[in-house]
Simulated scan of single mutants.
Amino acid sequence: MPCRGKCAAAVLGVGEAFCSSYLSLEPATETVTATATVTSVQTITETSFDVVTLTTLTTTITGPTTTIYAKREEKPSADPASQILAQCGNAASRVSSACSCIFSTTSTVTAVEIVTATEAAEVTVTTTATITTDVTITEHATPTVTVSQPIVNGGFEGYRTTGNILPWTTGGTGGRVEVINGVNPCASGGYCAGGQVVVRAYPPTTGGGYASLFQESFTAKASSTYSLSFMYRCLNYDTTTSIEVYYKGAKIGTAKGCTSGAAFTRVTSGIQFTTDETGAGSLEVRFVNPSNLPYLYFYADDFQATRNQ
Rank of each mutant, 00 (worst) to 15 (best):
N184K: 00
G190H: 06
T146Y: 06
G172H: 04
F230I: 12
V112E: 00
G182F: 07
A111Q: 12
G174K: 01
I131T: 14
G155E: 07
R176C: 01
G175Y: 00
E119C: 06
Q196E: 15
A121G: 14
A193V: 06
G207F: 10
S104F: 15
E178P: 00
V125E: 12
S104H: 13
T161D: 11
T169L: 07
G182H: 04
M231N: 10
F218M: 07
F230T: 10
A187M: 04
V179E: 04
G174E: 05
S104G: 09
R200V: 06
Q215W: 03
T124R: 01
S227N: 14
T132G: 13
G182A: 05
V135Y: 08
V109Q: 09
I102D: 09
T127V: 13
A120T: 14
T205Y: 01
V152G: 08
S217V: 12
D134R: 10
C186T: 15
T124A: 11
V147E: 10
N181Y: 12
T162M: 06
N164L: 05
F103S: 05
Y226R: 07
Y202W: 13
I102P: 11
R233Y: 12
I151F: 03
Q149N: 12
T169C: 02
V199N: 04
Q149L: 03
I165G: 00
S223E: 10
L166Y: 10
V177F: 05
P167K: 02
K221Q: 15
S227W: 00
T128R: 03
T162C: 01
T136W: 00
F214V: 11
G163Y: 11
C99Y: 03
N153A: 13
N184Y: 07
A193K: 00
T132C: 01
E178T: 12
I165Y: 02
S212I: 02
T162F: 08
A141W: 00
I137S: 05
S229Q: 11
S100W: 00
G171Y: 04
C186A: 15
V135E: 12
G182T: 09
H140M: 05
T225W: 09
I165D: 00
V112T: 11
F214N: 15
T130I: 14
C99M: 03
V112C: 11
